[in-house]
Amino acid sequence: MELRLAQGTPCWVSLLTDDLPGAQDFYGGLLGWTYTPGPGQLGAYVRAELDGVPVAGLGVSTATGFPVLWTTYFAVDDADRTAQLVRECGGTVAVGPLQAEHAGRMAIAADVSGAVFGLWQGEEHPGREAGAEPGGPAWSELLTPDADGSAAFYAAVLARPVRPVRPGAEESALVVHGRPVAGIRHHADLRGHPPRWRTHFAVRDAEATAGRALALGGRVLVEPHPTAHGRAARLADPQGGHFSVLEAAG
């Protein structure tokens, strides 16, 4: 068995959609993914792979009216204990903790502002840490009108510090072993959307990827633009799932 990722590390992203074959076609064409079957406790589910290595999950939402949504999962040493901490700190646990066959133990929760996230206690499947490989997860960032409350929540639940990225900035970072692993950004105007974790995927060329998304039936919500993490664009898949792509700086 591979070693579990350090507690608090974003270790997986998973999409719940109402059209799994359509989502597979879109993301396969956009990010180069292939697919293998995954644990089916919550319905049809596949793992997306790059060169045979799992990078993300896609599943079918069984809840009527549930939005198409990308969810960030955080590695934890004990999913049951962390789920209890979520409740004690003012969040809610919607699913689990439950066993995902031999892959690991998981839960789906919401923080104090209602942003959905997951907990993953890896066993045979430890998850995958974000990185710069094109097609894989690159960064996760929480958009919330209550950044201070959210920072205190995740620091308590994940037992990791949350620190400002720089003095006076409206963005903080969850820190694991001295390294920022996820962002928490104050965002007063969410344009009708609830607070949420935004998933970024690494790409070689943000402009080309945005154009490809349009050709595959998706939408460009925010045109490619410079950010502190590199050139980025915000996109939506044909089913309405929002995500971002990130072209590494330099």
Score class of each variant (00 low, 15 high):
residue 102 H to Q: 10
residue 103 A to V: 10
residue 103 A to P: 00
residue 103 A to I: 00
residue 104 G to Y: 08
residue 105 R to C: 06
residue 106 M to W: 12
residue 106 M to N: 10
residue 106 M to D: 12
residue 106 M to H: 11
residue 106 M to L: 15
residue 106 M to Y: 14
residue 107 A to K: 01
residue 108 I to S: 07
residue 108 I to Q: 15
residue 109 A to L: 00
residue 109 A to T: 13
residue 109 A to F: 08
residue 110 A to C: 14
residue 111 D to I: 10
residue 112 V to C: 15
residue 112 V to D: 06
residue 113 S to D: 11
residue 113 S to Y: 06
residue 114 G to M: 12
residue 114 G to A: 07
residue 115 A to Q: 09
residue 116 V to L: 08
residue 116 V to Q: 13
residue 118 G to P: 00
residue 119 L to T: 06
residue 119 L to H: 07
residue 121 Q to Y: 11
residue 122 G to T: 00
residue 122 G to M: 08
residue 122 G to P: 03
residue 123 E to W: 12
residue 123 E to K: 10
residue 123 E to T: 12
residue 124 E to M: 14
residue 125 H to M: 12
residue 125 H to V: 08
residue 125 H to L: 14
residue 126 P to V: 09
residue 126 P to E: 11
residue 127 G to V: 02
residue 127 G to R: 03
residue 127 G to S: 03
residue 127 G to K: 07
residue 128 R to M: 14
residue 128 R to N: 01
residue 130 A to N: 14
residue 130 A to R: 02
residue 130 A to I: 07
residue 133 E to Y: 07
residue 134 P to H: 09
residue 134 P to V: 03
residue 135 G to E: 00
residue 135 G to F: 03
residue 136 G to K: 01
residue 136 G to D: 05
residue 136 G to M: 05
residue 137 P to R: 02
residue 137 P to I: 03
residue 139 W to T: 02
residue 139 W to Y: 03
residue 139 W to E: 02
residue 139 W to F: 07
residue 140 S to Y: 02
residue 140 S to G: 11
residue 140 S to Q: 11
residue 140 S to N: 14
residue 141 E to H: 01
residue 142 L to A: 03
residue 142 L to M: 05
residue 142 L to N: 01
residue 143 L to V: 04
residue 144 T to S: 09
residue 144 T to L: 05
residue 144 T to K: 02
residue 145 P to S: 07
residue 146 D to C: 12
residue 146 D to Q: 00
residue 146 D to N: 13
residue 147 A to D: 02
